[in-house]
Design a protein around this nucleic acid. Sequence first.
RNA 1: UGGCCCGUCGUCUAAGGGCAAGACACCGGUCUUUGGAACCGGCGAUGGUGGUUCGAAUCCACCCGGGCCAACCA
Length: 786
Amino acid sequence: MEELSRRQSTAGRDFIRQIIDRHREEGRYEEIVTRFPPEPNGYLHIGHAKSICLNFGLAREYGGRCHLRFDDTNPLTEDEEFTSAIQRDIRWLGFDWGPHLYFASDYFERMYQVAEDLIRAGKAYVDSSSEEEIREARGTVTEPGRPTPYRDRSVEENLDLFRRMRAGEFEDGAHVLRAKIDLASPNMIMRDPVFYRIRHAHHYRSGDDWCIYPLYDFAHCLEDAFEGISHSLCTLEFDNNREIYDWILDEAGFQEPRTHQYEFARLNLDYWVLSKRKLIRLVREGHVSGWDDPRLPTLAGLRRRGVPPAAIRLLCDMVGVAKANSTVDLGKLDYAIRETLNPTAPRTMGVLNPLRVVLTDWPRGRTEELEAPFLPDRPGSPTRNLTLAGEVWIEADDFTQDPPPGWKRLSPGGEVRLRHGYVIRCDEVITDPETGRVVELRCSHDRGTLGRNPEDRKIGGTLHWVSARDGVAAEFRLYDRLFRVADPDDVPEEGDFTDHLNPDSLVVTRGWVEPALVQGHPDAPGISGPEDAPWEARVQLERLGYFARDVDFTPEAPVFNRIVGLRDTWAKRVTPKAPEEKTDTSAPIVAVAPRVSDARSAVRDADPELATRFERYQAEMGLSELDADVLTGSRAVSDLFEGALAVHGDAKEVSAWVINEAARFVGEEGEAPAFDGAALGTLVDRVADGTVSRRVAKEVLGEMATSGDDPDAIIEARSLTQQADPEVLIPVVEAVLSEFAEKAAEFRAGNRNLFGLFMGQVMRRSGGKADPALVRELLTERLEGG
RNA sequence: UGGCCCGUCGUCUAAGGGCAAGACACCGGUCUUUGGAACCGGCGAUGGUGGUUCGAAUCCACCCGGGCCAACCA
C-alpha cells in the first residue's frame, strides 16, 4: 500500500530486508515465515507496534506468513485476559495472522522430549543447588564460574531426577535442569543456563498438567523451530542470547535451513516511557486512569485518544529498522497523525473556551442557514447547514484588548470573518466590573461579505464559532505529553521517573460544538451517528486540531479527546520554544597514544614463539610496535605473515597486506583461511611487478579466500592483468568525460569532490584493471589542462 | 571491570571503496474564508587519532562515547 511503496526500491532497504533478499536469491527458504511472540502478561504499546509492523509487514511483502504466538511459559504472570486484548490490538493495527495462532504452552510435551534428548546426550543435567548457590557459582563478568556438586551426575540419574521433577515429586526450587556448556564462557548466558524450573502453579491454558516450566532461552528457539520460522526477529537486548539459541537448535539436531535470530533496535519515543514495568506502575499508582488512558503509549490508549492505526503504521515506516539505539522525536508521531487525518477528517467547528459575541445589528428573531462543506478543499464535498442567529460563541483566545504586531484575530475596532459566514467588527467590549475580565463582545456584521471579500479592505483573520442558539455543550479533554522532560528515566539519585510527570498532561475544558458532531450527519464520514464507535468518529475542529469522541461520549454529555493539535505557526511565533538546555555529551577531545592490545599481549604471554616474533618483527624488520602487535595476536595471522614473507621479502609491504586485507579471513576461533601465506606472498609479488593493480589484487584475495585457488590461476582465468596502456585508456577517459560533461563543467567550476566520480567511472569500465596512477594523470590533464 | 552490539544533519534512516541521499524538525517565501493544507526555497552530519589506497563515512589499528549481559523474567 502507500506506506510500502518506498520500500519497493532496492536502495535504502533495512538490514533485515537485505538479509532476506539475499536468502531469497540463494533460495534458502521455501517461504518467509516470521512471528510476533508476545507474552500475555501486559498490554501492547507503540514499541510492540514496530515489531508487529515489521513481522507482519515482511510476511505481506514477501508473500510469506506471520504467526501470532503467545509465549506463555511463565504461569505466574500470564493471563487469559491479555491474550484477547493483544489479539484485538493487533487486528486494530491492521494485521491478521489467519489460521496461524499458536501457544508455546501447546509445545510443552515436545519441548520436554528435547530436554530428555539433551540429557541423554550428556548436554544437560539436573542441578539440586539452591537458586542462590547457582547464582553465586556462576561467577561474574570478570571471573569464571565454577561447577556445583551436581554437574557430573550420570545420565541415568539425571533422567530419573528430571522425570520425577515432571511427576511432581519435588517442591518448587528443589531442582532445575541446566545445560552443560561452559562455566567459563565470556558470555554469561552460556554458563550452564537453566532450562527448566519447578513451579507448582496453575497455568491459564495447560491447567495443572505441568509443574515444570521451560525458560525463555530453552523455549523460544524451539517454538521458532517447531513452527518453521525462517527469520526470528527480536530486539537488541537479546543479542547475547543468540549464542544459546543456536546452541540448542544445533544440539537438538535441527538442520539448515533452520530459523535464525536477528536483532533490531526497539522503538523509543521521547517524553514517554515504554517499559512494561513502568507502564504497570503508572496504572497501579493511579497516575493515569487505566491501560487505555489516552496519555499512555499503549495501543489501547492511543486508540481511545483517537489515533488512527494508519498513523502508527506510518510512524513505524518513517522510523525504519536498524541496529542503533535511538529515541524518536515525538513530533514524528504528531506528523504521522496529521498526515493520516488531514485528507479525510471532516472539518467542523467547536469552541473550547467560549466568549460570547452579540451581533447588535442582527434583527431580533432572524435566523440564517449557512451552507458549509465538510471538506472545503474538495470539490463536491458533502455539506451541512450552520444556523446563524444574533449570538455566537467564539474562542476566548481569539480576542485581545491590545493586539501584538501581526495579530490577525479580533481586537477592539478590528474586523474578522466568521468561518463560512460574515465579516464582523468589534464595536464594544464588556468587562466584568469586579475582575476586569472580558465577558462579552458587541459586534456588527457586514451584510455584503457572505461568500465574498470586501473590495475596499483586507480581512486578515477567520474565526471558528458556534451558534449560541443551537450549539451543544461539550467537554473537551486536551492531552499533552505525559512527562515534562524528554528522558523521564534521567533522574538524580533517589529520584523516580514519576517525578517528571507533567501535571498539565490532561486539561479539561467545557465549551460548545455544532450539532452535527453530536447528532451525526448522514453524509459526513466519521460522524454519521451518535452511536458510532468512538474512535471511528474523528474530525478536525477547525483551527484547533483533530478530535475524537471519547468512550465516555453520550449524546446527552458529549466528550471529545484532542488527538493532536494543528501545526500552529502563530503559537511558535508568540511562544518560541524554550532553548532546551542540552547536556554536552560529546567526548572531550584528547589525543591518545595508540597502545598494544591487552588481549593480544595475553596471547603472546601464553605462546613464547609469538612473543619472540613480536620482538623480532620490530628489531629485525623495522616494523612498528603496533604492526608487530597485530601480526602476533594469533598463530594464524602470524603464520600467514611468515609464509608470505618467505615468498615476497618486503616486510613492510607484506605486513600491510596481512593487517589490512588478509587478517579478516582468519576465523573468529583462529582458523586459517583457505589460502596460505605463500599464496599471499605470490599475490603481493604480482602487485609489486605491476601484473595487477592493488584494487584487482584485493578482489583476487577475496576469491582466494572462498575458492582457495592460486592467485596466478585466478588472474589467468579471469584475465585480470593490469591495463597501463594509454592507447587503450584514453578513449575510455574521454568517453566518461563526454558522458558526464555537465559534471565535468561543475568540476572545473570548483567542485573537486567530483574527481572520484570520473575516476570511479573509468575504473569500473576497465573492470578495475586500469592503472590508477595513469588514469589520474590522464583525467587531470583533460580536466585541468586545456 | 570480561564479552557482545552500536556511533552519519537537532531527530530517525540511506549510501557498505568513487557525486554524503531522504524524511521529521527548524528558518524563509507563495497562496489561503482554518495562522491548517498545498507549493517553492534555505539551514544542517560521517565521534577522535593514526594507517592502507589513485581515492575512505565505508577497510585496518587504537582511543572516546552509548547500550546489553552476572533472574529458576521475557
